[in-house]
């Protein structure tokens, strides 16, 4: 997964040919072999930050650069990114930008006063590709973490994309002709959620008012998405079983046992009593829906009658 990131063309020109040398030289103590876990709160916070800046709702000028810190915990080889906090930057020159280290320090102290178990893991920005600016900020970040992570979020994810529009990098330095060079290396990560997080994500997603769309519509959409995802996963399992049968891959007994136990559970309920209860439940719901629509019509009728009375009622002779 650790493909060397293609650095922005502008950087390559400036840094010269050395850039093209394969990234195998002595590297900094990296996180490459680590399990990186990303929490949804981080992603939502970054998208909120981006939206705020792009609509001009923040103190920054509209459309300015979105930069912030990543907080989380590192325990052995497990790195968890829990939270993100925006941070103001200082402009350098025409297009340059650098971290205000005093502000970073302040943010770090405030954050760790509440969550002492978390530390600065790196930083984030929003954009479609890595720029030279990012390398500069990455260098500054090493003052706060010996091997900072760099999260890049794409503000316009492709339609129908199944992947989070997020890339996580770390930098690697190489000694070339006695000059240290750094490049970004992309790292694999997984999504992780705590129960509290999952509850709020789910609820907010459901409760968000979406102008004029029936909530039944939303629910049907959710069910169909879920079924499609289920189908995709089953397809993976089926391919695994087929390949195992053909002998193309080595036999994974624990996994096979798990699959078999799931299959054994499948026909959960059957029998006359069950289907009777099921149908009764279904008919109950139908009558509830029917009564509700009757009542709604009655209500609309009543409204109409009221409006009619207001408009024409006074014309009647007393």
């Amino acid at each position: 997964m650790a493909d060397t990131m293609e650095v922005d063309a502008g950087v390559e020109e400036k840094k010269g040919e050395e850039q093209k040398v394969p990234a195998t030289a002595a590297s900094a103590p990296g996180k490459k072999g680590n399990n990186i876990m990303l929490h949804p709160l981080t992603v939502i916070t970054i998208s909120d930050h981006h939206t705020r800046v792009s609509t001009g709702g923040g103190a920054q000028e509209a459309g300015g650069r979105v930069i912030g810190l990543l907080f989380g915990s590192q325990n052995g080889r497990d790195v968890s990114i829990y939270d993100a906090m925006e941070v103001a930057c200082t402009a350098v020159g025409a297009n340059g930008l650098e971290l205000n280290e005093a502000l970073v320090e302040k943010q770090k102290n405030l954050y760790t006063a509440v969550y002492p178990m978390y530390e600065i893991l790196g930083w984030y920005t929003v954009g479609t590709e890595v720029t030279e600016l990012d390398l500069g900020i990455q260098r500054q970040m090493t003052k706060f973490n010996s091997s900072p992570l760099f999260l890049l979020m794409n503000p316009s994810p492709a339609q129908g994309s199944k992947e989070l529009p997020v890339l996580i990098h770390e930098s690697e330095s190489h000694m070339l002709d006695g000059v240290a060079q750094s490049t970004f290396v992309q790292l694999a990560f997984q999504l992780e959620t705590t129960q509290a997080e999952q509850i709020s994500v789910e609820h907010v997603a459901k409760a968000t008012p979406t102008d004029g769309i029936s909530s039944i519509d939303l629910h049907a959409g959710a069910v169909s998405t879920s079924l499609r995802t289920l189908l995709a996963r089953i397809e993976i399992l089926r391919r695994f079983l087929e390949e195992t049968k053909k002998g193309n891959i080595s036999v994974d007994y624990p996994l096979l046992r798990q699959i078999s136990s799931i299959c054994n559970q499948l026909p959960t309920m059957d029998g006359a009593q069950f289907s009777e209860e099921f149908m009764r439940e279904f008919n109950d719901s139908l009558s509830v829906a029917y009564l509700a629509s009757v009542q709604k019509s009655a209500g609309s009728m009543n409204d109409l009658a009221d409006k009619f009375m207001t408009a024409f009622g006074h014309r009647r002779p007393i």
Binding site: P40, V43, I44, S47, D48, H50, T51, P155, P157, S161, K162, E163, L164, P165, L191, T193, Q198, V201, E202, H203, V204, A205, A207, T208, P209, A222, V223, T225, S226, L227, T229, L230
Partner: peptide, 24 residues
């Protein structure tokens, strides 16, 4: 609750990734 367009796009992807199990 309210959500930005980017957040709700991301939320859609998150839903595909893990909320489908709960829905079913």
């Amino acid at each position: 609750y309210f959500m930005s367009s980017l957040a709700s796009d991301v939320m859609g992807i998150l839903t595909e990734n893990f909320l489908w199990m709960r829905t079913l």
